[in-house]
Deep mutational scan, measured.
Amino acid sequence: DETGKELVLVLYDYQEKSPREVTIKKGDILTLLNSTNKDWWKIEVNDRQGFVPAAYLKKLD
Rank of each mutant, 00 (worst) to 15 (best):
K25G: 05
T3Q: 14
K42F: 15
L11I: 08
V10G: 04
V52A: 12
D39P: 02
D28L: 09
T3K: 14
K17V: 08
E6A: 11
N46P: 06
A54P: 06
R48K: 10
G4C: 15
V45T: 13
G27R: 02
V10H: 00
R48Q: 08
R48V: 08
E21C: 04
P53E: 02
Y56L: 09
L57N: 00
L60E: 04
L32C: 09
I24V: 15
E21P: 05
E44I: 09
I24M: 07
L33W: 05
W41Q: 00
L57Q: 00
L11N: 03
K26S: 07
G27V: 01
V45A: 12
I43M: 01
Y12F: 13
N37W: 07
K5H: 14
D61C: 12
E21S: 05
Q49V: 13
N46D: 15
I24G: 00
D47W: 06
F51C: 10
P19V: 09
K26T: 07
V22D: 01
I43N: 00
T31N: 10
L30K: 03
D28N: 09
F51R: 03
V52P: 01
L57V: 08
V45L: 09
K59V: 10
L57G: 01
W41R: 00
K38Q: 12
E21G: 10
K17G: 08
T36L: 11
E16F: 07
N37H: 12
K38C: 09
Y12A: 14
S18F: 06
Y56M: 10
D1N: 14
Y12D: 10
D13E: 05
P53M: 02
L7D: 04
G50I: 08
A54H: 03
T3S: 12
L33D: 01
E6L: 11
D13H: 05
K58W: 07
L32S: 02
A54V: 06
D1C: 14
K25I: 10
I24D: 00
V22I: 08
E2H: 15
W40P: 00
Q15G: 07
T23S: 15
F51I: 07
K42M: 15
L33H: 05
W40A: 02
L32V: 07
K5Y: 14
Y56C: 13
A54W: 01
F51G: 01
N46S: 12
L33N: 02
I24Q: 00
L60F: 08
L32N: 01
D28Y: 07
Q15T: 15
R48D: 04
V52W: 01
A55I: 11
K42L: 15
I43F: 00
Y12M: 15
T3L: 13
Y14I: 02
V8H: 01
E6R: 13
P53L: 03
I29F: 05
L57W: 01
Q49K: 10
W41D: 00
A54E: 04
K38N: 11
K26H: 07
K38A: 13
L9H: 05
E2A: 13
L7H: 14
T36N: 12
T31Y: 11
T31W: 13
N34F: 07
N34S: 12
K17A: 10
W41T: 01
D13N: 08
E2W: 12
I29L: 07
K5Q: 12
Q49C: 09
I24T: 03
N46H: 14
T36F: 08
L7K: 14
R20P: 06
G27K: 02
K5I: 14
R20K: 10
E21I: 02
E16H: 07
L57S: 00
V22E: 01
E16A: 15
L32T: 01
Q49I: 11
Q15K: 13
K38F: 07
E44P: 00
P19M: 09
D61A: 12
P19T: 10
L32P: 00
L33T: 05
D61G: 15
L9W: 06
L11T: 04
V45R: 12
D47E: 13
W41K: 00
L7Q: 10
V45E: 03
K17M: 11
D28I: 04
G50K: 02
D28G: 05
L11F: 02
G27S: 04
Y56R: 05
G4A: 15
W40N: 02
R20V: 11
T3G: 14
N46K: 12
I29E: 03
Y12P: 00
E16K: 11
N46E: 14
L30Q: 06
L9I: 11
E44Q: 12
W40R: 03
V45Q: 08
K26E: 07
N37M: 08
E2I: 15
V8E: 00
T31P: 15
I29R: 05
S35M: 08
V52R: 01
G50H: 05
V52S: 03
K58P: 02
R48E: 06
D28A: 12
V10N: 00
D13C: 05
G50W: 05
P19I: 09
K5L: 12
S35C: 10
L9Y: 10
D39A: 10
D47A: 09
N34P: 03
L7I: 07
L9Q: 07
A54G: 05
T23W: 03
L9A: 05
T36R: 09
R20F: 13
L60Y: 08
A54S: 13
Y56E: 02
G4L: 14
L57Y: 01
E2R: 09
R20A: 13
I43T: 02
Y12T: 08
K59Y: 08
G50C: 06
V45Y: 13
N37V: 05
R20C: 14
G4P: 15
K17Y: 04
Y56I: 12
E44H: 06
Y56A: 15
T23R: 04
D39R: 13
D39G: 08
L57T: 02
W40Q: 03
I29P: 00
N37Q: 08
P19A: 12
T3C: 14
L57H: 00
G27Y: 04
E6Y: 11
K38L: 08
V10W: 01
N46L: 13
L57M: 03
P53K: 03
N34G: 06
S18R: 10
K25H: 14
V22Q: 04
P53H: 02
A55T: 11
K26V: 07
E21W: 03
L11Y: 03
L32A: 03
A55D: 10
I24S: 01
K25R: 12
V22P: 02
L33I: 14
V10Y: 00
E16C: 10
K17F: 06
T23A: 04
W40E: 05
K26Q: 10
K38W: 06
V10R: 00
L7F: 15
E2L: 13
I29N: 02
Y12G: 07
L60C: 09
L60W: 07
T31H: 12
K59R: 15
N37P: 04
N37S: 10
E21M: 04
A54K: 06
L32W: 01
P19C: 08
D61F: 10
G27H: 05
G4K: 15
K17T: 11
D47Q: 12
Y56N: 13
Y14A: 01
F51A: 02
I24H: 01
G27E: 02
V45I: 13
N46Q: 14
I43P: 00
L30N: 07
Y12E: 14
Q15S: 11
N37T: 06
Q15W: 14
Q49D: 07
N37D: 15
L11E: 04
E21N: 05
L9K: 06
G4D: 11
K59F: 07
K42A: 08
Q15L: 13
Y56S: 12
S18W: 07
V8W: 06
E2Q: 14
E2V: 14
S35L: 04
K5E: 09
K38Y: 07
K17N: 10
S35W: 09
D1G: 13
L7C: 11
A55Q: 13
G4V: 14
I43K: 00
N37E: 11
V8Y: 07
D61Q: 11
W41M: 02
D39I: 14
S18Y: 07
S35D: 15
A54Q: 05
V22G: 02
K26I: 05
V22W: 03
K5W: 10
L7M: 11
S35E: 11
V8R: 01
E6H: 14
Y14Q: 00
F51V: 07
R48F: 06
Q15P: 06
K58V: 12
L30R: 13
D47L: 09
T3D: 11
I24N: 00
Y14V: 01
L30A: 15
R20D: 12
L11G: 01
A54F: 01
D47S: 12
N46C: 13
K25W: 13
K42I: 13
S35P: 06
K59S: 05
L32D: 00
D13R: 02
K25N: 08
V22C: 09
Q49N: 08
W41H: 02
K5R: 14
